[in-house]
Design a protein around this nucleic acid. Sequence first.
DNA 1: TTGTAAGCGTTATCAA
DNA 2: TTGATAACGCTTACAA
Lengths: 343, 343
Amino acid sequence: MSSKKTKKVTIKQIAEVAGVSFSTVAKALNDDVLINKETKKKVKRIANELGYYPNLLATGLRKKSTKTIGVILNDLTNPCFIETIQEIENQLSNKNYTMLLIDSNLDIDTENKNIFTMLSKGVDGIIIAPVSSNSKNIQLILDKEVKSVFIDFIPKYKNINYVYVNHEYAALSATEYLIKHGHKNILLINGPLHLAACSKFQNGYIKALIKNGLAVDKSLIVNKYIKIDIVYQKIMDLQKDCPINKIYTAILCVSDLAAMGVYKALKELGFLIPNDYSVVGYDNTFFAPFMDPPLTTVNSPLNIVSKLSVGLLIDQIENDIRLTFQKKVEPNLVVRNSVCKIN
Amino acid sequence: MSSKKTKKVTIKQIAEVAGVSFSTVAKALNDDVLINKETKKKVKRIANELGYYPNLLATGLRKKSTKTIGVILNDLTNPCFIETIQEIENQLSNKNYTMLLIDSNLDIDTENKNIFTMLSKGVDGIIIAPVSSNSKNIQLILDKEVKSVFIDFIPKYKNINYVYVNHEYAALSATEYLIKHGHKNILLINGPLHLAACSKFQNGYIKALIKNGLAVDKSLIVNKYIKIDIVYQKIMDLQKDCPINKIYTAILCVSDLAAMGVYKALKELGFLIPNDYSVVGYDNTFFAPFMDPPLTTVNSPLNIVSKLSVGLLIDQIENDIRLTFQKKVEPNLVVRNSVCKIN
DNA sequence: TTGTAAGCGTTATCAA
DNA sequence: TTGATAACGCTTACAA
């Protein structure tokens, strides 16, 4: 009933069939109060019969609004983005927006290109997890005056909207939890420091040590790209170097994924978790409770970050608000069974 | 240097500064061979200085091409889509397209809305994992004559482009593998049958049993939404019902995620894998090798599906090809340590 | 080699 | 209550 062979139906064609002007059709379809109810009904019926759907490019060109939001992530490979994407998509759908998703692959130039892609495509706003906290791309977004929210990012300037998880506190609380359980030598498996999140995470770890009168041993800090097999290999190597004297008794990981690599290595080497080594993760991903033993980890409320980001961004767009908002969301430790008391 | 306070720069403004007509600017920016090299250089310099970027809505309206592809997935919650999204994004980026991503939440009406959203936004093509194989939405896409590829889908009609994983063979090979290891009573943890993939998966399982002269016991087939904790609960319940006589010795799961739920339940009940129960997954997700024991699973080459889909779709778009393509990709069993021989 | 003008499908202003 | 018409920013014949 609905679809004819005709390629694409426009309001002009509807107008012809309905015997009214195309501007009347436009108004009727937009529920303009001035249009006669009968005409409206008729127009809508015909539009429906012809299988009409609006050309949002034309609308966008006129109205300067596309109902699409650009989401620029720095690394789609990172599984904690799954949750982010899911929740952002969900929230945007609720508000009748769609998501243009793009990945910067942790590369500044790609990110730059991505920003221009989004601008060119006329997005109403941008949600971005920047590659680096001190690249020119951040200023670029501000200069172009596109509505934006930064996530997973700690800004140096004011006038930036951001929603971020307090990564420092995440590491701090996890480290203190380990310290309270008697651990004095804690291996930190972290990502590269040019990632703002990793740098903050490391700060938290160090602060906790200092606060508790413990020495910071640089050799216990690993900064690598946090791919699961890289972590696995790193642990294997570390253990090969010092198989006898345990120089650390606990391992704090910057992600649950990393913890998975740690688990595998330790088990392969015949160690028991938490008896031989305690492990703490970060993210509280869906698989954490299903690990063996269930992973004690810091819950990073990414769903909240996503929800807030979308909500605030859309608010800004629809109400043309100029106030900047800056939200910090606090992570919380989720205790399971991968840490034990020692001494 | 690059960004002025001016809101949005258009070719008209560039024209004014350059002292040429705006159509000359347009041609210069598009590297039209007819334009004088000096003019071109000058125009490009000015465009750059003014921080110009094209308005792709206008371009799209004229050229009927937006360089964006709509990706409609049926359930973003399913972790096997992570890989799909990653690879699709990756492939599209390589070809200078961007992805409009939307989730149908396994709901036909949402899917219908999503298709119209994509059409309205003028996507050059659609990659869709349909909610159901017999909904009207499939015909809708064909009627609207938008270039498309169906994934995770087995079509009833011809003239449909699809790339799909042979789910039937996946289940068949996994089941036969278990049978060869002496298992005669195999519990199937499957999703709901209205999902084409699940229906095919079940067929494969049944075919393997019949082929090997084994009875099909309906009570050994579970059709539930494959959420990790639902599976976990299901196994707990099953075991509560029959704690003594093992009515099955192996469990075939429709996803690695389901297998994770199975692992947790079995371990909690004090069973050893694979000694007490053998388990096989499906998807070969990133965490499968990191499970304990490493999960034997069927590799579903989603990256290949994604790569093929994007490649063929873009081919179609850019060369206006009308031939339909239909690709089947074959899964392969990845043997790890979650299955053992019995009897 | 450059400029003029029409048109893509809408919205919005003004006149009828 | 409806209809002309201009405009959004670009591409593309066609004219100069």
